[in-house]
Design a binder for these strands. Sequence first.
DNA 1: CTTTAAACATACTTATAAAGTATGAATTCG
DNA 2: CGAATTCATACTTTATAAGTATGTTTAAAG
Lengths: 148, 148
Amino acid sequence: MKKGGEMKLSTTIRYGTRLMLDMAENQQNGPIRIRTIAKRQGISEKYLEKIVRLLRKAGLVDGLRGPGGGYVLASSPDSITLGEILEAVQGKIELCPCLGEPEKCEKHQYCKTRMVWNDINHAVSTRLHSTTLADLRDSVCPAETRME
Amino acid sequence: MKKGGEMKLSTTIRYGTRLMLDMAENQQNGPIRIRTIAKRQGISEKYLEKIVRLLRKAGLVDGLRGPGGGYVLASSPDSITLGEILEAVQGKIELCPCLGEPEKCEKHQYCKTRMVWNDINHAVSTRLHSTTLADLRDSVCPAETRME
DNA sequence: CTTTAAACATACTTATAAAGTATGAATTCG
DNA sequence: CGAATTCATACTTTATAAGTATGTTTAAAG
């Protein structure tokens, strides 16, 4: 009698965020290679490449090719939000199908449940869009959970 | 160049909530058969059965066997929260793996991102645990989106 | 006291999407 | 030119959500 869905954050989001934070913390010495971040973060290089390309396409980072190349943040860490990162790698946050396409919402009852999901969706979205990379970078990790 | 994870609510949660709401709205005439709800909601009967059994195991509904049997809410709609329903069908809400098992959080940086996920996790959880079935039942669906 | 209608239980199948890999082309620096 | 990097696409693998099948147990009703 196993239980159902998990509602987890995907690795694209978690890795993408760590990647951006890594860049915010280390970009003072020019472009950073994906290989470097991959090693530092313990993430597959190829997979990170795939993720960073989404961030690039969204205009959050710039890529510089050739020797000495790498990636740099396209703007200041205090103007990049977690919401932007999330949307870059996974699209608009949409907790259930009917939120994007209300025509699927044919029954009165769906509509009531839909309102709750919509609220929560909105709360999460707001929270993410009001947290910047700089906020994250400057935050302090509580001692109990830190193990560096 | 497809994007990553979707962070959607699973059908178990959505169906489970609709099932509970259906019961809250229709339980005045005694036990309700799963077949009835399945038809009313347009959901597979067998699948709903599977879901309701989780709700039963969690003590949110009671099952009555035999002819004339069915399910009833185990307590009043104003004392059953969406949080309880969600946890019954999918376990504690846990947006990312490290939240349950902090020993996986070995790097300083994870810890910073972890704090955000934890915050959001908490916000969602609180919201769900403070919304009751009765709240849902008595809510009014905005006209624009209602199509009964 | 048998029939029947429901819940209950488990195991299986299928479909979908997440996660990761492989291969190679394009660009740019030295 | 040669090497190091990004860039692009297509593929493979793995996990899990979603749904189905088959059958057992319980209890009301005839």
